[in-house]
């Protein structure tokens, strides 16, 4: 996929870029503010976007998200504070909580790729990806095949 990264922490953005490229994707651009993000989206159309909520010009990631949703670009939020996300997730597929782990991110990425391509089949969203509607907490004993759908 051609991916847009909206993130104001340079180290993080670099790392994210490397991780995505290693997974076979290409990076359309890195935007550090709402303005930059809008400019990139005007010029090109990403297949997917990772959008940090807190940008150089304040918590404007949600605005970027809404713009992406309005033109049908699938995306997820990345944030250290889930409470900043509106209840409807502004049209995002979900949110990845920061700081995320390598495993958590890769697991979320593989799910997202499947979802964008439309071949989710048996796949269940991993815990590292927070969805707008949360499934109930699982308590007690459960033999879990991570690859199977939850009942």
């Amino acid at each position: 996929m051609n991916i847009l990264i909206v993130e104001d922490e340079v180290l993080l953005a670099m790392e994210l870029e490397s991780e995505l490229e290693a997974a076979g994707h290409s990076i359309l651009g890195v935007a550090m503010s709402r303005g930059d993000a809008f400019a990139i989206v005007e010029a090109t159309r990403p297949d997917f976007a990772f959008v940090d909520i807190h940008l150089k010009d304040g918590p404007s990631g949600v605005d970027v998200g809404r713009r992406l949703a309005s033109i049908g670009v699938p995306y997820v939020f990345m944030t250290g504070n889930l409470k900043r996300i509106p209840d409807d997730f502004a049209g995002a597929i979900g949110a990845i909580e920061k700081p995320y782990s390598v495993n958590g991110f890769r697991h979320a990425l593989s799910y997202l790729v499947k979802r964008v391509r439309g071949d989710l089949a048996d796949t269940v969203a991993p815990p590292s990806l927070v969805l707008p509607v949360q499934p109930s907490e699982q308590e007690g004993s459960a033999v879990m095949d991570v690859w199977k759908t939850r009942a």
Binding site: H107, E139, M144, V146
Partner: peptide, 25 residues
Amino acid sequence: ARDIAVDMVGASGRKDVKLDLQLFP
């Protein structure tokens, strides 16, 4: 524990590793 276990197994891509979670808060 659930997050770590699920993400570890999930990221490994190993479908032959099953998780049996008995987790109480």
